[in-house]
């Protein structure tokens, strides 16, 4: 095989960097706006460099009516979604990974098919039901719908996490004196933990980002995206940009934490 030519290298780096800029520049720009003075939004022309940094815009957003309450609701919803999805999804994923039983492929297929149901189908009728049950306009209602949305994802991810742990290991533990349960707890669980944590954090992001169901199912107990989208048309531009940045930042941090597991997670769940 011939060695790589420098022309190829230059083209590769040019393309790679151009695409990286395409991804990163918009994030930089909204960050720039979020940390510029409020009126900078309307200034014309204005610099592309962070020449006048200010927390004024962010402070305005954070102290605006409802922001903190909505943030709190978002966190509660996302945490509840994360925990519930994991409690329900991890055992199912484990079963798909470890056991052969009649209809296993049908179950897998059925889980995939649930992705076909749009949020509108889930949330609009449920809103009616939740009103009757008195659950409407609570974080729990939103979290339940978010769990329904995230559960297929969590099941398939945990299945792939457990599939990646050889069955032999648990069996070896059983020949060395473990019961099936203690073999799972001592061997598979510790090995699966990083993958499960990554799946859990990604579930958190999914819920944190979801807006349709949250906006349908709440009235006063808004989550952050639901709050932002419902006040969008009445709010000034700098409020929207600060809100955009405020929603992006935590998700970015979480993504950074789980980046090692990202491709593993998605790759297998895409099947």
């Amino acid at each position: 095989m011939k060695g790589r030519s420098w022309v190829g290298d230059v083209l590769w780096y040019a393309g790679a960097i151009a695409l990286a800029l395409w991804v990163l520049a918009p994030i930089y720009l909204i960050g720039l706006l979020a940390f510029s003075p409020r009126m900078a939004v309307y200034r014309w022309p204005r610099p592309l460099l962070p020449l006048e940094l200010s927390v004024e815009t962010m402070r305005f957003f954070v102290t605006a009516t409802g922001t903190l309450a909505a943030t709190w609701n978002s966190i509660v919803v996302a945490l509840f979604t994360m925990i519930l999805s994991l409690i329900l999804g991890a055992p199912a994923g484990y079963a798909l990974a470890r056991f052969f039983f009649p209809g296993r492929e049908a179950v897998r297929m059925g889980i995939l098919m649930t992705r076909m149901f749009p949020m509108a189908i889930l949330s609009i009728p449920l809103a009616v039901t939740f009103i009757r049950m008195g659950l409407y306009d609570t974080p729990w209602a939103v979290a339940l719908v978010h769990t329904a949305m995230a559960l297929p994802f969590v099941i398939l991810i945990t299945a792939s996490v457990f599939t990646a742990i050889p069955r032999d290991l648990e069996e070896a533990a059983m020949t060395l004196g473990c019961s099936p349960l203690s073999a799972f707890l001592r061997i598979s669980l510790p090995l699966a933990l990083p993958g499960l944590a990554a799946a859990a954090l990604f579930t958190f992001v999914i819920s944190w980002n979801e807006v349709f169901a949250a906006a349908i199912l709440t009235l006063r107990q808004r989550t952050l995206p639901a709050l932002v989208i419902t006040v969008l048309n009445e709010s000034p531009l700098y409020f929207r940009f600060a809100g955009g940045f405020f929603m992006v930042a935590p998700a970015l941090v979480i993504l950074l934490i789980i980046r090692r597991y990202l491709f593993h997670l998605w790759g297998v769940s895409g099947r």
Partner: peptide, 20 residues
């Protein structure tokens, strides 16, 4: 990793980013 970053960004936030 850079190309994967938008995974964390919601539709709403993306809309606001491009509104800017």
């Amino acid at each position: 990793y850079v190309y994967a970053i938008p995974l964390a960004i919601s539709e709403l936030a993306a809309g606001l980013v491009w509104l800017a």
